[in-house]
């Protein structure tokens, strides 16, 4: 859900369905899957399917943070703490 999605800029953009075009325009900058769902109004399951197709077509790339596979180390946690306190 927090996996980041980024559109790959295309020199010649092929015609796409409006919902796909909407997703691609939102992902011009990195955006989480949950935010893509929130901003398009499509349910998460729908967004996941559309994104999977776009990944297969090379139109978007996705990245899941290493911190979701393993807990961040102590130095990272300390820096996160510091930043949260500064909010």
């Amino acid at each position: 859900m927090t996996t980041q999605v980024v559109a790959v800029p295309a020199v010649r953009a092929p015609e796409v369905d409006p919902e796909v075009e909407l997703i691609l325009s939102l992902c011009a900058r990195p955006l989480s899957v949950a935010e893509v769902s929130s901003r398009t109004g499509f349910a998460l399951g729908v967004v996941r399917i559309l994104l999977a197709d776009l990944v297969d077509q090379g139109r978007v790339v996705v990245r899941t943070s290493d911190w979701e596979r393993a807990r961040p180390d102590a130095a990272t946690l300390r820096s996160v703490l510091e930043r949260i306190r500064e909010l």
Binding site: T2, E68, V80
Partner: peptide, 18 residues
Amino acid sequence: MGRMAAEVAGPVPDTLKI
């Protein structure tokens, strides 16, 4: 994937979920 994404659109942030 991470490097590829970085090439196309600048840094992709790391995320923490609570």
